[in-house]
Simulated assay, not measured.
Amino acid sequence: MKADDFDLWMRQELHTVELALQRWVPLEAPAGLGQAMRYGVLDGGKRLRPLLVLAACEAVAGLKCAALRAAVAVELIHAYSLVHDDMPCMDNDVLRRGKPTVHVQHGEAQAMLAGDAMQALAFEVLTPDAAASASAGEPPLPDGLQARLCRLLSRAAGHAGMAGGQAIDLASVGRPLDEAALCDMHRRKTGALLQASVMMGAACGEPDDRALAGLSDYGAAIGLAFQVVDDILDCTQASETLGKTAGKDLDHNKPTYVSVLGLEPARAYADALRDEAQAALARSGLRDAARLSLLADRVVERHH
């Protein structure tokens, strides 16, 4: 696939996701809650997770309307996690996606409620009844598919995944971690939701066991690669470039791949994980995985 074709696909899909978020994240939620929710999730971010959902769905010739709901749901979970992570009781950050964090803009209590509401909304989006599907101009979403998508997302977001990884992260401030422990933390905190994005897209179709195994391995590799690159960028880029506070991991004495491995070994590790992701796609037997392949390249190219 040509880079121009891929860039066009990304722009189109990002526009579609943004419109869906605007449609499903309610402005009319009471007492300013809707404004805080929309501030936290609209008009910002790379939207990598939705793109992984949509690309994986295409790779398995899945149901696009289901994948769009999954893409919105996973972005809502990601956005809620950022809102909560930025709060004073956790990372105490003031900049996210190039603008003040939600608790700075709307207050701590409203930020907490906005994150709670976005988490709940993610599962509401995944479980439309017949009336909701009809109003969106979609065919009914089968109950079994709704359950599979909810299971994948909840496991990735909960104690065994993202929330558990954040707990390890908070408990590790000022403590040395070896590479294995760091990998475990980030496979939970960051990797689980990225891997789930791929598997939710796959769940919208009917891939065979070989394809599922390849997609799972791809998601695991790209999920960890994303975090390694984030650690590299945190110590090599300015806040204005990142859209969030640069150097905060070092300032908070948090272990990172750069602090554990060193900068150049971390760069090499990111490249190796990209190669693992590409090899997993090759093993999958999928004929149309070019967009997933290019997404892996884009994730890792950020550090070059």
Rank of each mutant, 00 (worst) to 15 (best):
G62W: 13
D184A: 11
K64T: 12
A192G: 01
S284T: 07
R96T: 01
Q278I: 01
V173H: 14
A114I: 04
L19C: 15
L194I: 12
D169Y: 06
R274V: 04
P140R: 10
I222Q: 09
M1I: 01
S293Y: 14
I222S: 09
G243L: 02
R97H: 10
R298Y: 07
V228I: 14
A266F: 09
D178K: 01
R287M: 10
A246K: 03
Q105H: 09
D43F: 06
D143S: 07
G243C: 03
L95G: 00
Y39Q: 04
G40L: 09
G161S: 11
Q146D: 06
R49S: 05
G107M: 07
P128H: 03
Y80A: 04
A117H: 11
A132D: 06
R287C: 05
A3K: 11
R187I: 01
A61H: 11
L52M: 07
R283T: 10
G158W: 15
A171K: 14
A120E: 06
R298S: 00
G219Q: 07
Q110L: 15
G165R: 03
G32R: 11
T101Y: 14
Q227E: 11
A290E: 13
A171W: 13
Q35V: 01
A136R: 10
V17Y: 15
A114T: 02
A180Y: 04
S172I: 07
F123C: 03
T245S: 01
A156Q: 13
E75F: 04
A31G: 05
E264Y: 04
A213F: 08
L281G: 03
A20Q: 14
G214V: 02
L19Q: 15
M200L: 08
R283W: 15
A111V: 10
L182E: 15
E206R: 13
R274W: 15
L42H: 12
D169K: 03
H186G: 06
D249T: 00
L51T: 02
D275K: 05
G205T: 04
Q119D: 05
R151N: 11
A279M: 14
L295N: 06
N92W: 04
E124W: 10
G158T: 07
D4F: 12
V104G: 05
Y218D: 06
E75G: 01
W9P: 00
V25K: 11
A167E: 12
L153Q: 07
I77C: 03
Q22R: 12
P139N: 14
D209W: 03
A238R: 11
A272W: 14
D230P: 00
L27N: 08
D43L: 06
Q146K: 07
L52A: 01
D178G: 02
E58D: 08
A120D: 08
V260A: 12
K2H: 13
M90G: 05
A225P: 05
L145H: 12
P50W: 14
S259E: 11
A277L: 02
G44Y: 13
A279G: 05
